[in-house]
Computed example of a mutant assay.
Amino acid sequence: MTGIPERWPALLVPGLTGSKEDFIAIMEPLALAGRRVVAIDMRGQFETLGPEDPTAYTCAALGEDVDELAAMVGEGGPVHLVGHSFGGLVSREAVIDGRTKFASFTLMDAGPAAIVGKREEAVRTIIKELPDLGVEHIWSSRFEADALGAGVPDEIVSFLRKRLLSNSLTALTVMAEEVLSAYDRTDELAQIGVPTLVLYGERDDGWPPHLQAEMAHRLDADCVVVPGAMHSPAVEAPATTAAALTRFWNEAESRFRTL
């Protein structure tokens, strides 16, 4: 964007096998609304290095990273936080721990507890095969076939391969275990009082849409269902997703300023 950001900044956290690039399609429209928007790789993901210590990749440990990044992005002021899929579980830790004053929190295609359904099966396969067969096997046996079957352009397929193979093996394994064992912290999150949005694709194959709708009700949160989208609305329906986030963020800022 050009000029000086007039509104509070935002921090975007990707999912288990994702990266900052998952948000590319929404970055410009979000920034044009007058705010600084920062998307990250979590430690051990793609272009961000991480240690071999497995404890560095729990939701709690990664949530501490989110706290520190939010402090830098917001320079001590309020920050809008978005967590996609597993990134939602990580970001939830940062909101609940209370170390950072968040302007708002968005759970994007992230459920109340451990992932279920089709993506649960995929994660279990990763944990089972990763130690003996390696990341290259996971790519060629599952991710590549899914990408080609979806008609993803060759240059994007090449990027997806490079990204997956760049992940720390330790990080990928522990994060996969975390997304399968996460417990429901919805009631704790509801007590924090941070304006919350639950946003998901109408055909999400991660957490079933009805579970996310129930979570939104329990949180007394705003809820946006993105038509036609599956598990990655920022990629599959960027205009709708960016518009929903901008509207929610503007409303959240208005609430803060009238307190």
Results as ranks from 00 to 15, higher is better:
1 M>D: 02
3 G>A: 10
4 I>G: 00
4 I>F: 14
5 P>C: 06
5 P>D: 07
10 A>F: 02
10 A>T: 01
11 L>R: 02
13 V>K: 08
20 K>V: 00
21 E>F: 06
23 F>G: 00
24 I>L: 13
28 E>N: 13
29 P>E: 01
31 A>Y: 03
32 L>C: 07
32 L>Y: 03
34 G>M: 07
38 V>R: 01
40 I>F: 01
42 M>H: 10
45 Q>G: 08
51 P>Q: 02
52 E>K: 06
52 E>H: 07
58 T>G: 15
59 C>Y: 06
59 C>L: 09
60 A>V: 12
63 G>F: 06
64 E>M: 13
64 E>K: 14
66 V>W: 05
66 V>Y: 07
68 E>Q: 14
68 E>G: 07
70 A>D: 02
73 V>E: 01
81 L>S: 04
84 H>D: 01
84 H>E: 08
90 V>I: 15
90 V>G: 05
90 V>Y: 05
96 I>C: 08
97 D>L: 10
101 K>M: 03
103 A>M: 14
103 A>R: 10
109 D>T: 09
117 G>P: 06
124 R>W: 07
125 T>I: 15
125 T>C: 09
128 K>T: 11
129 E>R: 13
130 L>P: 00
131 P>S: 05
132 D>R: 14
134 G>I: 07
134 G>M: 04
135 V>G: 00
137 H>Q: 06
142 R>Y: 05
144 E>T: 00
146 D>M: 11
147 A>V: 04
148 L>R: 12
149 G>V: 09
149 G>I: 08
150 A>K: 14
152 V>M: 15
153 P>H: 09
153 P>D: 13
157 V>F: 11
160 L>Y: 07
160 L>G: 10
162 K>I: 09
170 T>M: 06
171 A>K: 06
174 V>E: 03
174 V>H: 06
188 E>Y: 01
188 E>D: 15
190 A>V: 02
190 A>E: 03
194 V>L: 02
195 P>C: 07
196 T>E: 00
197 L>E: 02
206 G>T: 09
210 H>Q: 14
220 D>S: 05
222 D>A: 15
223 C>F: 07
224 V>T: 11
226 V>F: 06
226 V>D: 00
227 P>D: 13
228 G>E: 05
233 P>F: 10
237 A>E: 12
239 A>T: 14
244 A>S: 12
250 N>S: 12
250 N>I: 13
259 L>D: 10
